[in-house]
Design a protein around this nucleic acid. Structure first.
Lengths: 203, 203
DNA sequence: GTCTATAGCCAGATAGAC
DNA sequence: GTCTATCTGGCTATAGAC
């Protein structure tokens, strides 16, 4: 247990609050549409104070991404504890978790092709580290599931990994949600089915 | 054959050139990152001239979307001519076509959750009309394929439709392309496989 | 309809007092 | 570290001459 001063605790709590707001706004509007003024207003502090904690808007987004990746690592770790689950089950559970986060409006969506943001993330050491950790953990399960014959072995592992990342921000979820015809639980099961079982019928 | 004056032909050609540029820039950087200055420079005319043709930036994007949807309708129409193809085949061919367009860097990607743009599109009659036409054509094939037992009948048709739309802009393609490990043809087949066959192995 | 020049606005970032 | 007030730059859109 590391000793932290009271002041440091307050600081940390404030930064957590900031990241929670950023996370939600990023999920709701995306990086470009989100403004720093909004974030400040949502947290309830002045914009200049924000910049004492984070150097730039890109930095805010990166920190939010690190936060989500850390949560993913926690989830992965808890799934690793279950020795009975097959690698395929574990991959499915991770996918289910990402959909739950997205349904809760807490999955930050970063337009994949953005220029300024992409460059900032590509140079953000902590973000890259977390991304690699998640990729490695999932990669282990992917190759294991392919070896076990439960995951299509004809697919390069990287495409499976990319697909899982992409489905975590799948716009189909928002469309289904907007349609209003299905419950949250149904939406998740339908999306998991299209992802793992595919659109074609299985006999 | 409708008679059109020479002047109208020139006008039309210029607007086609504008839309081609918008299409490419929209595919490359997305709506928010694209600037009207860039479009004007790319076409080789002054920005003010652009605004004589299109009332706003949103209007530009909507026109580009209509153009792509019209191309999709053409593709669909040509596929309808093939009486031997099954509905599933035809859906796959449409999906393949969207991936080819995306690979060519000509699939305009509109951040699905954008505010100003979404509102503009939701009020754009021509865009909505084309979107409905495409949806109806695909819907026919979807229900036919489900009746034939080739498409998973447990999926609501709408989720199949949404999934096909979403895969047309799937960020996984850009990631695979950036990886450089696969040819364009391989990328398309891999993506079609993950979409229609799913990640799970089929026996 | 095309251009140059500019209005008007908004968002990211900072100065400087407390 | 927090605030108010401000700077700065870039972007959409338009005025007005030709």
């Amino acid at each position: 247990m590391v000793r932290v001063s009271f002041r440091e605790q307050v600081l940390h709590a404030r930064e957590e609050a900031i990241l929670a707001s950023v996370n939600r706004l990023l999920a709701e509007k995306g990086f470009d549409a989100m403004t720093v003024d909004e974030v400040a207003a949502d947290v309830g502090i002045a914009k200049a104070s924000l910049y004492k904690h984070f150097a730039s808007k890109e930095d805010l987004a990166a920190a939010a991404m690190v936060r989500v990746l850390d949560l993913a690592l926690e989830k992965i770790e808890s799934l690793r504890a279950d020795a009975l689950a097959t690698p395929l089950d574990q991959l499915k559970e991770v996918a289910r978790w990402t959909l739950q986060v997205q349904l809760a409006g807490e999955m930050p969506s970063l337009p994949a092709q953005n220029s300024a943001l992409r460059a900032a993330l590509a140079g953000h050491a902590v973000y890259l580290d977390r991304l690699m950790q998640v990729s490695e953990q999932l990669g282990t399960w992917i190759t294991a599931a392919q070896a076990a014959g439960s995951l299509n072995a004809a697919l390069p592992p990287e495409i499976v990994l990319y697909t899982l990342f992409a489905r975590a921000c799948d716009p189909v979820l928002a469309l289904l949600k907007a349609g209003g015809a299905h419950s949250d639980a149904q939406i998740i099961e339908l999306l998991l089915s299209t992802c793992f079982d595919g659109l074609r019928a299985r006999r």
